[in-house]
Structures are given as structure tokens and as C-alpha cells.
Design a protein around this nucleic acid. Structure first.
Length: 944
RNA sequence: GCUCGAGUGGUGGAAUUGGUAGACACGUUGGACUUAAAAUCCAAUGGACAGCAAUGUCCGUGCGGGUUCAAGUCCCGCCUCGAGUACCA
């Protein structure tokens, strides 16, 4: 008789599914608790050991909260639109939904094997029309909203229209496009329908605009800023170029300030908050205008707007720099300089994003021959162009202050531009002085002698009174491009009348993704939906009809782009509250009950993607009254990545012989990844299997150490290409799901990245066997559960464990609580404890971590219901105090000191000595200690 | 460069937040059971020194200072590694 985890686990997984043990009711007297995992993209590779880490942690916490009497919402679903399924479709012609379905089934199977307590009745899939109906619905609501900067919230577009009718747009403070023209109520009245639509589009929270986008030719689509890493696409590493295209955008910049402020109110990891803060990139400063100097050649005057965070350094300006792409460059360049400028502009346009990034040290630029006028001194300021100024940030032009900015300094040095010093007692002969806190401005007319704050204020005031500038807060955050030239994504609920976008009425949603023959762009360069033959909207029937019927009277073309990956994940947490509702995205009642996510666990990699966009959508949903909280997740934990331990063989470069690690010496070798499954725990390679694994190695020669080949090891990210992926199925098969759960938790702190190493799994496996043995006799089939009262020793062990386990789980220290259980079971087995009074609470304690074995024990104890619904055992201090080795003595006030005492001193004597010492100390320190803890041995600890 | 983390035995990691550093586990060594192996159980396991022994003494949390009766923990100055970000005006 032994611990047969396979039988036990299969049995209880079946039981939970059958009895819907984890189904959460939407109406309950109990308090709610919402534990959310980031739903996965179901890739073809299935789960690896890194995936379940966060899921196990959240499952433990969800189960723990159920024991604590909460009604727990713990759902799971799939982010099932995405690139890999589409690329597979392009290669094979198979519809992405087939691949997706197959992958989801495999994921589900793997998830079920791990014993997760999900409420599967609430599963969502972003590619399911019943789900993306509501993604389309949110899009329509965004289209029909504008951001009122006075009320600081989104409002229905109708309120904006009535404002236009009453007073035009001159006084309206709203988030809108920069090129929005000003108009009066009368002018608005004269506008025709199309003109009005054009104006409104500049205010809508999702809008159509010609934007410079990141176009990835290899993927045939645009990418968002967060999908680009080091100038190449995150997926596949393809080059990315800038291109102007008409695209849907989301006016996330309207929420920049609130997205920053909200971070203070949520318990999210600091690094993640920092990442979002940096991404939003708020900088406070001034916006000001420089006018160009006119002469015979340059008759017309131009204005150049710049943004600066250092208005206090304005008297240090000795030149201006424009980005080479700046629209004024061609207009202001003098004939003498034209050739040089054109050559330079051409040179920069040829440099890829990557070159520019990798080569930041080379200073390049050209003089335009034009001058601007300094707003205060009236001096001539030469205008240069240089690629250190980025077209995409701020206005694409800067006022250059070489003494206060290192880049300006380097540029000035390189081109021999003067570097005036405007700082008091600061040496700038070697480098710029960028510290704004510790200096006094000098040589600066009316602000000389002022400090940073004061000087900024004075300059901004002066600029305002001249009408040449104002205080401004600038954000790095850009509006988010929302169109993708893909097939496998949500279709926009949009058709075009005279080129103007119209929303399909809500009652006709969802707009189903059409069938296409080919998943590639069309020959005319349209997105894949351009291949659909049935893709036109008939306004008579309110339905999709054949393209050939387009007459632009009652049948109109539909939008050909689809939504990006983050669309479906931006409201899924709310949809889980009421996932089968086909009338509303969620009912008012379910929102009122569940409110928001209490604990969200997922990866840091979504910091500036999903986790920012979803906060934006939530704030919008809140503004419009659908959501009740403007931050949807109170607490978030980033689980650390599980890294792989790659294995390498070494091939000598000249001979091609494969050399064992210890024999390399100073030979020239190149390391080659080998599949980790071909290597045993002592780094010995299975040569036969290795030869069979790849044809090019079948005839390889080996240079062995004592007949064995030893590989090299390195910790790297787990990935297919590195042959270091460990699949949880194999572990489950060998040790069981409970062992895997315990082991993944035991590996180390949840938030820390750690390499996967199977060596230690025998420890937790041994723990489970020991636990099992506690209540099984040595003989076949006998259970040894005693009904007599437990010994005080066992009770002490139990209550110590309850206390520690509770503290650990509350602090999400799952690794230490596994240790706590191990100590507990070790002690109980030393005590030969098999009494019901101890085993029953123990089953509940262990159930979040090792749910299957806990259910088994619970059933053997005679219960008919699931252990998952049992109340958490209560901790009783009385079982501990008697046994405690510490003697607490109470005092008032605070003081700490250490006192050496002889070993054999009794309690009374210690107390007397301590009191005496305390009196002396009190006189010395003038305070009184609160509590004294005496540890046997010789040290007395006085704790405040 | 900037921002944020982290440095503790052979290894993963504990340490009730300033109070017996190294819990728990892996690994290693020795032992028991066994024809043998596996499994299981028991013991030892930071370093140095002293002792037949129980035990004792000293040194030890990346480095150098400091505060404190007391520092892995707090402060100052470095070093190393990791993550994010990058010409952001």
C-alpha cells in the first residue's frame, strides 16, 4: 500500500467537476473575493512549468479565501485572438479557429490536471462572437464619447454637440487633436453633416486619423510602441519603419494624468508602477514660440514651438535644433545651406531606427542658415538640424542650452557654437551642468540671482504676458494605434459613408468575422479582410451582404482592419462577473456585488501594454457609469519568471569533435544547445539518444571523460529554441499534481525569477508520502485514524502550524508556508499522531496547497462534502503558551536592552534581575521597556 | 547613462521587520534494513581552533566606515549581478 497520487488526483478532479464545487454565485450573503489570473494566449506549445506558477499561487489564495468564508470568484479564460494562429493559417490554409480550438482543449486538459479551482462555467474566449460582441460594444461607446477636461471625465458626445450649438468650441476644454480649428456657434450651425462629423472625430475617444505608425513589412501590420523592442518587432524581431497611414487610435492621452494618479491608490509592485510612470513620462515645463528672423531671402516669418523643462535657462540659449523631419526645415533653409541640409536629411532618413539607437555617440547635424529671434534679448539664434532631436517627441524642435544640457553641450562643442554660462560659480569647461536644484541663475537679465523654481515662474509669467508661451505639462505617452492589418482579431463595428466612419447600431452586434480564402493582404495592399466577398453593410436590412452590392446608398463598405491584441483583454475581468449575459456587458447587480478584482496575479511583461490599456478602459467605463471603481485591481503581484537550465555540448571548431566539458581546456569550441531531456541530473549526456536526436550528429565523434560526456549548463529564459523547456505533464505523471504545486511554491519567493531544477522535487514528494502515512497503517488497506483526544504535544504542533500558515498566506509567502507544513508533518510523524482532532484541521490547512490529498484525507475522516468548503481552523494560543520557552514580562513605555544571565537561573530570579536592571536603565535612558523576552541560555531581550 | 531590485553555507532559500543567523529542502558523508538495488528510517553537515567526550572559544550575511547594549536588517561611501528604460529637450 502506498500513496497512489494518480488515482487520488483523477478521482477528485472528477468529483469537483461533477459537483461544480467551485461555482461562484452572483448573489450571496457572504463577502466577495475576486482572484484573477491573466488569461493565457493558447499557443501550440502548451503549458510549460513557468505558466502554472502564478496560477498555482492564485489558486492557493482563492482556496484559502474560501476556507475563510468568502464567496470567491476565480475564473479562467483564453486570450484567443493572436498572431501565431494566423501565421499558421497563412502557411496551411487552415482556419485559425480550428488551431485555436485545439490549443484551448490542450490547455484545458493540462490546467485540469493541476487541480485548479476555477469556476469553468464563467470561461470566456476573446475570439468567441458572444464575447467580442462586447469588445465591439465598448469601441462604440468610446466612439460616442469625448473627454471633458473641465469635468475631468469622459462624457457622451451629445453633450459636446449641445456645447457646440450653444457656444462653438472656443471655450471648450477637451482632449482633442492638435489641428482642431476654432469655430463659433454660428459657424457650427453652417457646417454640413460631413464637416460636423469631421470636427467631432477630432474629439472622440477613438478616432480615425492619419498617423505616423510603426509599420512592420515582414508581419504586414502596424505595431504599437509597446510591441517594439530595441527598434525591432517584439514578435519575430523584424525591422520596423515609420509610415503614414489612416488608422483608428485611442485617445489614451486624455487619461494620462489620471493614469498616473491612480497608481498611488493601488497596491501594485513598485517596479511596475515605475514602468508605467516612465511610460507616461510626465514632464513639467513651458511651451514657447521662437519667431524666425526675416531678411531679403526669408521674407515670411515662421514660428517654431518648443517645449522645455528648463525655462529658467532661456538666457543660455545659443542655438536651436530641429529634427531633420521637421516640416519647417525645407521652408527656412537658406540657398547657401540647402545642399548641405538636403544631404543631411537624406543621410538621416536612410539610417534605420536601429542604427540611430546603436550609434548615439556620433554627433551629426547641419546648419540651416536661418536664425530665430531670442524672445527676451532679441539676439539672433542660429537654427540647426540634428538627429538627436526626435520628430516624435514634443514638437520636434528644441531650444538648445549647451551649458545646461549635455547633448546640447556636445553638439555645440562639435560644431563650434558658443557655450554661454548662466550659472553662478559653476565650471562648465568640461561638461554641462544639469542639476537644477543646486544653483543660482546668473547673466540672465531679470532672473539673475534667482533659483530654479522662482526663475521658471518668472519666465513663464513673462512669456505669457508677451503671448509667446505658457506653462505646460508634456507627456511621453502617445495615443494608442488601434488598427491592425490582420485577419484573426475583432472586426470593427464600422462602415463608411462618403469615407466617414459610421457605427453599426448596438442591437446588430456582434459583427461576425467574415470567412476569407487567403489570410494574407490583398494584391492592392488591403488588409486580409479585403479578401472577404461578403463584407459590406446594408443599412436597410442591417446585415452583412456581398461586396458586389455596394452602391454607397444603402450598401456600404465595412472597415477592413481588425482590433489589436489588447482589445479583448481590456475588459475581460468585468465580463467574468456576468459572462453569459447577452443583453449587457454585465448586469448592474453583478457589478455591484463583485465591484473589482481583489488580487490579480500575472507577469511584469504586460506593464506598459495590457496593464495600462485596461486601466484606461476601466476609467472610461467608470466615467460613463458602467463600472463602479476607476481602478479595477486593488492588488497585483507579478510572479517571477521560471528560467530554464540549458545544456550545451562543445564542438571543437577545427576538427568537429565533440568534447566533454572538463576536457575543453583552451581549445577553441563552439557551444551547441542540447535538449535537456537527454541529460541526467549529474550533467551526463545520453550519447545514444543525442546521436539519434539530430541527423547531423549521428556520426559525430566524442572526446569523453572516463567514458562519459558531461555537458555545460547555463540559466536562460525557457524557450523552444534553447531546448530547455520543461513540461509539467511529465512531472505530474511522475510525482503528481500536488507535488508539482508544492514544489513550484517551494522553489522560492513568488515574485522572484528562478531557474527550474527538478532535483529538489523529492523533498515535497517525500512530505506528501509522510502525510499519507500518518493516517495509513503499515498493512494493506488499513486506516489508522484515532478518535481519542490528541496529545498536548500534537495540539501544540497543530496550532503553531495554523498560526504560521495563516500569517504566511496572508503575506503571500507561499514558499515558507510549505516549509511550515513540512515541519508540522515531521513533528506529527515523530509523535505518531493519527488523531482526528489534529488530522481534521490539518486536512483543511493543507488543502489549498495539495488539494487532492487533502480531499482524500477528509473523506477518510468520514466527511461527505468537499474539504474546499470547510472553515479554516481557529488558532488557539493556549496550546502554545504553556510550552513556550519565552517568559514575557510587561512594562509601560519603550526601551530595549540586552542582559547576560547565568544559564541555571529560574523564572522568578530572572524576573527580579531584569526588573532591577530595568530600574537602572530607566535612570540611564529615561524610559521604560514594555516587554521583556527571556530566552533560555543567557540573553534577555527587552522589546519595545 | 537613468530608474528599480538583489547580493546570506556546496545549492534553492529562512530569519516574527533591530533581538539565539543559516529554518525547511536539495546535495554530500556515515549508519540501519536488504543477497543486492530501489524505497524507507536514523545521524552528521558554515569555517577555524581546543578537548577522549559532553562541550567550549573565536570568525562569519558582497567590500569599507558609522549609529546602537544589540545590525543580514538602519545610515554614509563603494563593488558586483539582474530587470526595465533609453538621445524625452
Amino acid at each position: 500500500m502506498s500513496y497512489k497520487f494518480r488515482e487520488i488526483e483523477a478521482k477528485w478532479q472528477h468529483y469537483w467537476a461533477e459537483n461544480q464545487t467551485f461555482k461562484a454565485a452572483n448573489v450571496a450573503d457572504k463577502k466577495k473575493y475576486y482572484v484573477l489570473d491573466m488569461f493565457p494566449y493558447p499557443s501550440g506549445a502548451g503549458l510549460h512549468v513557468g505558466h502554472p506558477l502564478g496560477y498555482i499561487a492564485s489558486d492557493i489564495y482563492a482556496r484559502y479565501k474560501r476556507h475563510k468564508g468568502f464567496n470567491v470568484l476565480h475564473p479562467m479564460g483564453y486570450d484567443s485572438f493572436g498572431l501565431p494562429a494566423e501565421q499558421y493559417a497563412i502557411q496551411t490554409g487552415q482556419h485559425p479557429s480550428i488551431t485555436t480550438e485545439a490549443n484551448i482543449n490542450r490547455y484545458r486538459e493540462q490546467l485540469d490536471k493541476l487541480g485548479f479551482s476555477y469556476d469553468w462555467s464563467r470561461e470566456v474566449r476573446t475570439s468567441d462572437p458572444g464575447y467580442y460582441k462586447w469588445t465591439q460594444w465598448v469601441f462604440i461607446q468610446l466612439f460616442n464619447s469625448w473627454y471633458n477636461n473641465n469635468a475631468n471625465k469622459a462624457e457622451p458626445i451629445e453633450t459636446l454637440i449641445s456645447l457646440f450649438e450653444a457656444e462653438g468650441n472656443v471655450k471648450i476644454k477637451a482632449a482633442c487633436d492638435e489641428d482642431t480649428p476654432l469655430f463659433s456657434a454660428e459657424e457650427w450651425d453652417r457646417y454640413n453633416k460631413r464637416q460636423r462629423q469631421e470636427v467631432l472625430l477630432k474629439y472622440r475617444l477613438t478616432y480615425l486619423a492619419d498617423t505616423e505608425v510603426n509599420w512592420c513589412p515582414a508581419l504586414g501590420t502596424v505595431l504599437a510602441n509597446d510591441e517594439i523592442v530595441n527598434g525591432v518587432s517584439e514578435r519575430g524581431g523584424h525591422p520596423v519603419v515609420r509610415k503614414k497611414m489612416t488608422q483608428w487610435s485611442m485617445r489614451i492621452t486624455a487619461y494620462a494624468q489620471r493614469l498616473l494618479e491612480g497608481l498611488h491608490r493601488i497596491d501594485w509592485p513598485q517596479p511596475l508602477k515605475d514602468a508605467q510612470t516612465n511610460w507616461i513620462g510626465r514632464s513639467e515645463g513651458a511651451s514657447l514660440v521662437f519667431f524666425t528672423k526675416t531678411d531679403e531671402q526669408n521674407k515670411s516669418q515662421h514660428s517654431i514651438e518648443v517645449f522645455t523643462t528648463r525655462p529658467d535657462t532661456i538666457f543660455g540659449v545659443s542655438f536651436m535644433t530641429l529634427a531633420p523631419e521637421h516640416e519647417l526645415v525645407s521652408k527656412i533653409t537658406s540657398p547657401e545651406q540647402r545642399k548641405e541640409v538636403e544631404t543631411y536629411v537624406e543621410y538621416t532618413s536612410k539610417r534605420s531606427e536601429r542604427d540611430r539607437l546603436s550609434d548615439v555617440k556620433t554627433i551629426t547635424g547641419a546648419f540651416t542658415g536661418a536664425y530665430a529671434i531670442h524672445p527676451f534679448t532679441g539676439e539672433d539664434i542660429p537654427i540647426w538640424i540634428g538627429d538627436y532631436v526626435l520628430a516624435g517627441y514634443g514638437t520636434g524642435a528644441v531650444m538648445s542650452v549647451p551649458c545646461g544640457d549635455q547633448r546640447d553641450y556636445d553638439f555645440a562643442r562639435n560644431f563650434g557654437i558658443p557655450i554661454p554660462n548662466i550659472f553662478k560659480d559653476v565650471d562648465i569647461s568640461e561638461e554641462a551642468f544639469a542639476d537644477k536644484a543646486n544653483t543660482i541663475i546668473a547673466n540672465s537679465d531679470f532672473i539673475s540671482g534667482m533659483k530654479y523654481d522662482e526663475a521658471c515662474r518668472a519666465i513663464i509669467d513673462a512669456l505669457e504676458s508677451k503671448g509667446q508661451g505658457r506653462g505646460k505639462i508634456n507627456y511621453r505617452l502617445r495615443d494608442a494605434v488601434f488598427s491592425r492589418q490582420r485577419y484573426w482579431g475583432e472586426p470593427f463595428p464600422v462602415f463608411y459613408v462618403d469615407g466617414m466612419p459610421q457605427m453599426i447600431a448596438e442591437e446588430y452586434l456582434p459583427l461576425h468575422l467574415p470567412e476569407v480564402e487567403k489570410y494574407l493582404p490583398t494584391e492592392t495592399g488591403d488588409p486580409p479582410l479585403g479578401n472577404a466577398t461578403v463584407w459590406a453593410w446594408c443599412t436597410n436590412t442591417n446585415s452583412v451582404v456581398d461586396n458586389s452590392k455596394i452602391d454607397n446608398k444603402t450598401v456600404f463598405p465595412l472597415e477592413l482592419n481588425t482590433m489589436p491584441g489588447w482589445a479583448g483583454s481590456s475588459q475581460y475581468f468585468n465580463r467574468y462577473m456576468d459572462p453569459r449575459n447577452d443583453q449587457e456587458i454585465f448586469s448592474k447587480e453583478s457589478m455591484e456585488y463583485w465591484q473589482d478584482v481583489d488580487l490579480y496575479i500575472g507577469g511584469m511583461e504586460h506593464a506598459t501594454g495590457h496593464l495600462l490599456y485596461s486601466r484606461f478602459w476601466q476609467k472610461f467605463m467608470y466615467d460613463r457609469g458602467w463600472a463602479l471603481k476607476d481602478e479595477y485591481a486593488k492588488k497585483l503581484i507579478n510572479q517571477g519568471m521560471i528560467l530554464g537550465t540549458s545544456a550545451f555540448v562543445y564542438r571543437e571548431e577545427d576538427s568537429g569533435v565533440i568534447i566533454s566539458k572538463g576536457l575543453i581546456g583552451d581549445k577553441k569550441v563552439s557551444p551547441i544547445h542540447v535538449d535537456v531531456s537527454l541529460v541526467n541530473a549529474s550533467d551526463e549526456l545520453d550519447i545514444k539518444a543525442f546521436k539519434a536526436s539530430r541527423p547531423e550528429f549521428s556520426t559525430a565523434e566524442f572526446f569523453l571523460e572516463e567514458g562519459k560526456y558531461f555537458v555545460g549548463r547555463e540559466v536562460e529564459k525557457m524557450s523552444k529554441s534553447k531546448f530547455n523547456v520543461v513540461n509539467p505533464d511529465a512531472i505530474c505523471e511522475e510525482y503528481g499534481a500536488d507535488s508539482l504545486r508544492l514544489y513550484e511554491m517551494f522553489l522560492g519567493p513568488l515574485e522572484q525569477a528562478k531557474p527550474w531544477n527538478t532535483a529538489g522535487i523529492s523533498g515535497v514528494y517525500g512530505f506528501l508520502k509522510k502525510l499519507w502515512k500518518l493516517y495509513h497503517g503499515g498493512k494493506e488497506g488499513t486506516f489508522l485514524i484515532g478518535d481519542e483526544p490528541a496529545s498536548s504535544e500534537s495540539l501544540k504542533t497543530l496550532h503553531k502550524t495554523i498560526k504560521k500558515a495563516e500569517e504566511d498566506i496572508d503575506q503571500f509567502s507561499f514558499n515558507t508556508s510549505v516549509s511550515t507544513f513540512m515541519i508540522c508533518v515531521n513533528e506529527l510523524s515523530a509523535q505518531k499522531c493519527n488523531q482526528r482532532a489534529v488530522l481534521e484541521p490539518l486536512a483543511i490547512l493543507i488543502s489549498p496547497y495539495a488539494p487532492h490529498i487533502a480531499e482524500e484525507l477528509w473523506q477518510l475522516l468520514g466527511h461527505t462534502s468537499s474539504v474546499a468548503t470547510a472553515p479554516f481552523p481557529e488558532f488557539k494560543e493556549e496550546f502554545l503558551v504553556e510550552q513556550s520557552k519565552a517568559y514575557p514580562i510587561s512594562f509601560n513605555g519603550k526601551m530595549r536592552f540586552t542582559l547576560e544571565l547565568p544559564l541555571d537561573m529560574g523564572k522568578d530570579e530572572i524576573e527580579k534581575t531584569v526588573m532591577e536592571h530595568e530600574r537602572t536603565q530607566k535612570q540611564l535612558q529615561g524610559r521604560t521597556p514594555k516587554k521583556v523576552i527571556v530566552v533560555p541560555g543567557k540573553i534577555v531581550n527587552i522589546v519595545g
